[in-house]
Design a protein around this nucleic acid. Structure first.
Length: 171
DNA sequence: TAAGGGTTGACAC
DNA sequence: GTGTCAACCCTTA
């Protein structure tokens, strides 16, 4: 059996490190990690998860690097040109991720609004699906707030959510 | 199959 | 205004 080949690269920003993984031209994951040590152990886990070979190939992420560099400089960036593999999750999760992906830069939504858009009343399930979002920032789950205006939660930590919202001048 | 989760809205105080 | 609680329903163990 032929093993699948994945490529990865890392992108450092003031709050930590982003790990990008893709297969061919399709992004499989954008993950937030706080240190290089975490990146290393996470990659070891990924090899088992994807049952394939993962190699460091920064040259394969030129488009992503450029977009995220601009994003962290505070520029309004549209991540829609990126090819994300939404089929990684369940059908419900991919619907939630696709809808969240449409929230424009500098704007926010609520779990309820997101639920209404996909014609769904299980608000907690929306939060649960966003919590499993594999494409940090590109699928802007940080732009989803609670209906009372509070931040809600964030899988990578509330402090990062605040940082990203400050960056987009939403807070 | 039960428990838990990044929520919400209604109700009581 | 604040606290509590039931209901929503998907995912995971």
């Amino acid at each position: 059996m032929k093993t699948k080949k994945y490529i990865f690269t890392t992108f450092s920003f003031p709050q930590g490190i982003l790990l990008f993984v893709k297969q061919k031209e399709l992004l499989k994951e954008i993950k937030y990690l706080s240190s290089a040590k975490e990146v290393k152990s996470y990659l070891e886990g990924l090899c088992n998860k994807f049952k394939g070979e993962i190699v460091d190939d920064a040259a394969g992420f030129q488009k992503e690097s450029e977009l995220f560099a601009r994003y962290f400089q505070g520029e309004p960036v549209d991540f829609s040109p990126l090819s994300l593999d939404f089929n990684l999750g369940t059908p419900f999760q991919s619907r939630v991720w696709r809808e969240a992906h449409k929230i424009p830069y500098g704007q926010t939504s609520t779990y309820k609004q997101l639920a209404l858009k996909i014609n769904h009343l299980g608000y907690r399930s929306i939060g649960q699906a966003l919590g499993r979002n594999p494409f940090l920032i590109a699928v802007p789950c940080h732009r989803v707030l609670s209906s009372d205006g509070s931040l809600g939660g964030f899988s990578a930590g509330i402090s990062l959510k605040k940082y990203l919202l400050h960056l987009e001048k939403v807070l």
